[in-house]
């Protein structure tokens, strides 16, 4: 094997597979984690940080801190049900 430029080990996965995303919900909770797969249960995230604006402060601060200092993981795996996904965007997006 030579330099692994552009190498993708699992091209059959979801387009967001391996991408760290922000999932906003209809309530006060926001998730940041690495998108794994989507199935009938919902969206599977791994290495997840969970933020509740009602108890943890402004969501904007949570996102800004995650962008600057990285994702503070509290859950190894989490499934966000489809009905709880209001928006989904890349953490790395401008």
């Amino acid at each position: 094997m030579t330099m692994s430029e552009g190498m993708v080990l699992h091209p059959e996965r979801h387009a967001l597979h391996g991408i760290t995303v922000i999932i906003d919900t209809p309530g006060s909770v926001t998730y940041i984690g690495r998108f794994d797969v989507e199935d009938e249960r919902g969206m599977h995230l791994i290495n997840v940080a969970i933020h509740d604006a009602e108890s943890d402060g402004p969501t904007e601060d949570f996102i800004a801190q995650s962008r600057r200092f990285g994702v503070r993981v509290t859950r190894k795996h989490l499934v966000v049900p489809h009905e709880d996904v209001k928006t989904i965007q890349r953490l790395g997006a401008a």
Partner: peptide
């Protein structure tokens, strides 16, 4: 090892 991200990061470093 991750192919998705590291596969781009290594050539970027070069």
């Amino acid at each position: 090892v991750c192919g998705c991200a590291a596969g781009a990061a290594r050539p970027a470093l070069a």
